[in-house]
């Protein structure tokens, strides 16, 4: 089939690709349907799982999957955000602390910690220079 020829059933293409992969793997394993060995089922299963895994990996790298993933993630985050806002309003009305309030306190404490540590570092440098001057 020429490269530019369109498949008559595009929806069936992924399945055709998966089935082709499965059969190729079966053939490469030397599996012959008329003379199945003792572990024929095992071989067949291995080939089936491998082909399926390969197909799943290809699919999850495809633009279609990545686009759908982004869309579902955006929707989930939008829903979560409206829930957060709703809860925050409810808690605020009931005069109770929300996550935003605790976040604010944590940030204040971190700012305070940074300033204190900064001061300690300055004092340490000063102490060092004084000790040097005193010859200690």
């Amino acid at each position: 089939m020429p490269d530019d020829a369109k498949s008559p059933f595009p929806a069936a293409d992924p399945f055709t690709a998966f089935w082709g992969e499965f059969m190729t793997r079966m053939t490469s394993m030397g599996f012959q349907p008329p003379q199945p060995g003792a572990d024929a089922m095992q071989q067949m299963r291995r080939a089936f799982f491998d082909a399926m895994a390969q197909y799943a990996d290809n699919f999850m790298r495809s633009e279609a999957f990545l686009g759908a993933m982004k869309q579902s993630m955006d929707s989930a985050l939008a829903w979560q955000q409206s829930m957060n806002q709703f809860l925050q309003k409810g808690l605020s009305t009931a005069q109770m602390p929300s996550r935003a309030d605790t976040d604010h306190i944590v940030q204040l404490m971190r700012g305070l910690e940074d300033r204190l540590l900064g001061r300690v570092a300055i004092l340490e440098t000063r102490m060092d220079s004084i000790e040097k001057r005193l010859g200690k």
């Binding site: 990996d57 999850m60 790298r61 990545l66 686009g67 993933m69 982004k70 993630m73 955006d74």
Partner: peptide
Amino acid sequence: SLLSVWADEKYFD
């Protein structure tokens, strides 16, 4: 790695 593909900034904010 699939993780690197999924973490691409085009798809993951």
